[in-house]
């Protein structure tokens, strides 16, 4: 016995977790963040404005939960960069572009981006939010979103050998 709000929220759980991973880089903390987000969302559902994208609303809650988490120093100092790879991009550009950029390579390039750049990439290029929506989720100016996003795209293009 669920309602549209609950169903839509549950359908977005993988997206929320992916965004949480981009913030924490730790699966256990990402799961905690998703659960906290769901708890807060259900508690605040009366304040949800349907004219706002539900995912943007949930992502914003998740990011605030992440800030609360870092404030309590439960992330800083224990963070492990699970995606951290010391070597620079080793993808062979020619072969990748010829095979229409396999999903795996794209994800690998994404994982190698600095956290701030990966977050805007996820919100805008993967979740297809507008610059303004991403700025609202991240609590930063639109201009900052744009500068991070363009640097991220240039880096991805370089890693994957896109001219």
């Amino acid at each position: 016995m669920t309602d549209p709000f609950s169903e839509n929220l549950i359908a977005l759980l993988p997206n929320l977790r992916r965004f949480a991973l981009s913030l924490t880089r730790r699966p256990d903390l990402a799961d905690d963040l998703v659960q906290i987000t769901a708890e807060r969302a259900f508690a605040a559902r009366g304040r949800y404005d349907p004219s706002v994208r539900l995912d943007a609303w949930l992502f914003r809650i998740l990011r605030n939960a992440f800030i609360d988490m870092t404030r309590r120093d439960k992330v800083r100092g224990v963070s492990v960069d699970v995606y951290d790879t010391p070597e620079a991009a080793t993808v062979d550009g020619a072969s990748v572009t010829e095979t229409a950029l396999m999903l795996g390579s794209a994800q690998e390039a994404m994982a190698r981006l600095p956290d701030e750049q990966r977050q805007v990439m996820i919100l805008i290029c993967v979740e297809e939010m507008s610059y303004a929506e991403a700025a609202e989720v991240l609590g930063i100016p639109t201009g900052t979103v744009m500068s991070r996003l363009s640097r991220a795209r240039l880096a991805v293009a370089q890693m994957l050998g896109i001219k």
């Binding site: 993988p14 993967v126 795209r153």
Partner: peptide, 15 residues
């Protein structure tokens, strides 16, 4: 290109 390649990228299911 750097946008289209990520569009609709599926997310891993949650545990």
């Amino acid at each position: 290109q750097t946008r289209d390649m990520f569009a609709k990228m599926p997310a891993d299911p949650v545990p």
